[in-house]
Design a protein around this nucleic acid. Sequence first.
DNA 1: TAGCTAACGTACTAGTTCGTACATTAGCCA
DNA 2: TGGCTAATGTACGAACTAGTACGTTAGCTA
Lengths: 221, 221
Amino acid sequence: MTSVEEPARPNGRIRDAARTQAEILDVATQEFARAGFAGARVDEIAARTRTTKRMIYYYFGGKEQLFTAVLERAYGVIREAEQQLDVEHLDPVAAIRRLAEVTFDHHEQHPDFIRLVSIENIHGAEHIASSEKLGKIGSPALDVIRQILAQGQKSGLFTADVDAVDLHAMISSFCFFRVANRHTFGALFGRDLIDPAQREHYRTMLGDMVIAYLTADRATD
Amino acid sequence: MTSVEEPARPNGRIRDAARTQAEILDVATQEFARAGFAGARVDEIAARTRTTKRMIYYYFGGKEQLFTAVLERAYGVIREAEQQLDVEHLDPVAAIRRLAEVTFDHHEQHPDFIRLVSIENIHGAEHIASSEKLGKIGSPALDVIRQILAQGQKSGLFTADVDAVDLHAMISSFCFFRVANRHTFGALFGRDLIDPAQREHYRTMLGDMVIAYLTADRATD
DNA sequence: TAGCTAACGTACTAGTTCGTACATTAGCCA
DNA sequence: TGGCTAATGTACGAACTAGTACGTTAGCTA
């Protein structure tokens, strides 16, 4: 029955460490995002790869380290996106709005990343803590925000007493919640926050909210 | 060796179905919040109870149903809190601010609940979906928001084009993010969103943000 | 007070799951 | 081209884990 032999390569396998690792990371990202850290199955990850479980341990050491590697790569992607932010030429209001939109879009386009972050928080961010790469590399977005904020506050356009980190939290929270909590929110309130028909509505809402906060006339304080 | 008998009750055990169930739910809430659904251990829950694993299956049927029961009770608590909202006598601005503060406080005081909701979202809200109790009981807060919003919009005080669900999402997102993501946020940006010293700052920030959004003068649209 | 049932405990199992010991080979380099 | 090492595959095991079969008893009720 096994008379038909594969022509040249026994299993069509070519050795390529980089590709094998990347493939493991791809599948692991999906699997961890799907089921959480404890719910993810190392065997399942291996099965959906063109390689075997042995390779996961060979390259990453274990489930825990694999998850850390997945996180590191995921954060790398968002940092890259942030580096391409090009809003310096805009006036402060337009720049902030643009920043909010980019954040909004990125969250929407990377639900797996959002899930990974949720999972990492369930585990007290211990993987980030134990990662050298993820130590203390504040996002590039933060620098941009700092710059715009200083500009807007100096000109008197922005009245709010926020710093860059606070503003980043404000913008992120809305974008994050919309993606991360869409299931419970949808189930409880019957509204799909990710509904494409409502996308523009929420995107505008976020921008309006942030700008309103920054530019509100606060009488005394 | 076993000559010393316990005076009256062999194990100091008294039969009390309600208390046993409540105790299981208490411990299960902690355990699920600690480790996620898959990470939680039924044996661990049983061990930390004055009863045995058998009782978990006797009363709840299984791990899945236990988690659903935990969720049901947790949502019950928040709904009760919302029912005690008493803001009808306040003007719209003060009422919304109060509502935001109550939401803020409740999230801060119930981190386990937040974690459970995060976990439930990882699992696509399937437990909520399969629960009759959690079917479609929109929160009482929603009714309150609807009322305040109508009042504020009618008087022309509120200019924003939001409905109650949107506003609820806006307020919740900030409160939720602050608690749920505090670990990754702290690790990445070196700022503890739950730092008591910053509590008033963030509480005010939320109120300012929501009010600014609702009352901003939007030129044309 | 006899009997019945809800409430509870013990001990076990079947299946899973992470991890590893051992064997093999592709392909680079001397 | 011969050999060496990084890269890969196979097969297995030890520990864990959800769930259950079976036995016991508290305490209410007739």
